[in-house]
Design a protein around this nucleic acid. Sequence first.
RNA 1: CGGGGCGUAGCUCAGCCUGGUAGAGCGCCUGCUUUGGGAGCAGGAAGUCGUCGGUUCGAAUCCGGCCGCCCCGACCA
Length: 516
Amino acid sequence: MSAKTAISPTRAADFPEWYQQVVRAADLAENSETRGCMVIKPWGYGIWELIQRQLDARFKATGHRNAYFPLLIPLSFLEKEAEHAEGFATECAVVTHHRLEMVRDGQTGKPKMVPTGELAEPYVIRPTSEMIIGAAFARWIESYRDLPLLINQWANVMRWEMRPRLFLRTSEFLWQEGHTAHETRDEALAEARMIHRLYADFLRDHLAIPVIPGEKTEAERFPGAEITLTIEAMVQDRKAIQAGTSHYLGQNFAKAQDITFAGRDGTIEFAHTTSWGVSTRLIGTLIMAHGDDDGLVLPPPVAPWQIIILPITPKPDTRDAVLDSCRALAETLRRESFRGEPLRVHVDERELGGGDKKWDWIRKGAPIRIEIGPRDIGSRKICLQRRDQPPDAKEFAVKDEFIRRAADILDEIHGTLLARATAFRDANIRWCDSPDAFHAHWDTQPDAAGAEGPGWLLTPWAGSRDQEEELSRRHRISIRCLPVEPPACPAAATGEIPCFLTGTPTTRRAIWGRSY
RNA sequence: CGGGGCGUAGCUCAGCCUGGUAGAGCGCCUGCUUUGGGAGCAGGAAGUCGUCGGUUCGAAUCCGGCCGCCCCGACCA
């Protein structure tokens, strides 16, 4: 087996660069001419379409309906909720004109387009849609009978980020944003928590990513929210990625926008609202969670093609027979199903060297590769290769046997990825109950470019916001969440014990880490 | 937005210090040879040297502005 890897540098040598190389090698996306914005290529967009379809089914199953709201939000809308406005103020793209005029350059005579027709009121390109959707909710909701109102939108949003990274933080990104209104605090909280669990389950079952569900501290909350629930994923450089959030907004937005209803006793009340979202950042998380030094590794549920059939055609005279056999196998496999959907199978008939094709699909992360050559037709055998195994690992299987097992193998691959990611995460969360150990943990870690970052700490925590922010600044970390349930962690104490910093007895736990 | 690095062929980069209007490898195209594997040989196509301006007889090369990318930080549901 060759020691050569398909991706250079390796994860260990330079993780950020490795990430970019995987995005390129797997043909997922590229930077565009527009600053901070990406072109999502078919293989990457195919992953997004699958995420979208499968999540959408879960939203529908829990009573939500899709709608669509404007891209442009009147500036005055954003001003209505002070905390919200302040939170997004520094990253808004603003539309100030509504036409262009052709003018000729005085010296060169070259035509130039200049903006003209200044708008009386500028528009903000939505960084999120609470305000424009809230305005609609205010019109739609009159009585308690109109509640709950459960709406979701699939859309693009724009946040003028200072430091973009493909998929992880781009200026424009694709996401879904759920917005709901409820009669009572309890109902709204139940909604926010239900979606929170739905996200955690989705990442586990569809992306093979184990997450830690928890609550954000005040310092990390969504601007304007009362409670922000988050799912936090650990990726292979041990950094945390906030993979999805679900907010209980209290009556803050209802009061700012007059979302009121006539209650059961006839009095006018403010609705309790929620909002929640996941974005194309999930794809970045996926790459960093499962990718290896040969490229992307896709969990089968979101692989645009789950099985790649590679015809081996060494001789022109057997070529047609091999291709026919491959196409027939693909057709048969497509009648099999994986989790209720037909298997997604592709025959790669490109006129390329066999090795080129094989490595192309390794880099793209296709879960299963099947090779069929002239000799296999007679013997009814296939050569099976799995992306959760080394590139040269192969198994010769009887074709009919494989057809029956295909979906199970995909499940197995999913299980392998989830188990690996879970083991990695659990091995990199440590219990910490003293300030000295806490500081030492962050201070002694190498600050290299490679995947050698410090793991997470789990601590008892009863500190103040100021104390949290001081520790965060000092070590360039943050409280990722106050976990709903503390993760498996050797030596972790349970029950009411002293806060590691203040000594105040507490049952609360915090997870600390560096994040993207 | 601060600090650092960079922008030359599709990709990775050399050339820049010591100005004289472009090179390599990979990839691509063609042909031959190979063929259970990221092949070999030969030939070929491909670049307004990020952009605008300045210095100069002459700028990829020197100087300045701007744009973009990468890393670190600040910021960031």
